[in-house]
């Protein structure tokens, strides 16, 4: 069987995506993305001299939004609320991981 070798692209703050790319990668309509920006669910990268663009981390969030929209038929308002709650959960999970790393003794493997 043929094995394809490929480089993985990091979704981080060094990459930027246009609104159209974000829509394409997430399955959302461009108008949906624009509405979610209005609701504050996505933050536009406002570095000087650039067109409207989004950082790589927004792609992950947009893909979640695309799935939730498709699977739950949510409108933009509901979607924005759900995304903000999911973001909050992710932040809390990250804080929990940080606390575990700092204070919990290593478990024997």
């Amino acid at each position: 069987m043929k094995i394809e070798i490929t480089d993985a692209v990091w979704l981080d703050d060094r990459l930027r995506y246009t609104l159209a790319e974000l829509a394409d990668l997430s399955g959302l309509a461009e108008s949906d993305v624009a509405q979610l920006v209005d609701y504050g669910a996505f933050v536009i990268d406002e570095r000087a001299g650039m067109d409207v663009s989004f950082c790589g981390a927004s792609v992950d969030l947009a893909r979640v939004a695309g799935r939730l929209r498709r699977d739950f038929d949510l409108d933009a308002g509901g979607l924005a609320l759900m995304l903000s709650l999911l973001q909050r959960i992710r932040e809390l999970e990250a804080q929990l991981r940080a606390v575990h790393a700092r204070v919990l003794p290593t478990l024997p493997l």
Binding site: M1, K2, I3, E4, I5, T6, D7, A8, V9, W10, L11, A57, V59, D60, R90, A94, R97
Partner: peptide
């Protein structure tokens, strides 16, 4: 289908990566 994905150093928990067109 079998892929060999090159992951450069520096990954951390929850890191997302994209393999376009795969």
């Amino acid at each position: 289908r079998v892929f060999k994905a090159r992951i450069s150093k520096g990954a951390s928990e929850g890191q997302r990566l994209r393999l376009a067109g795969k």
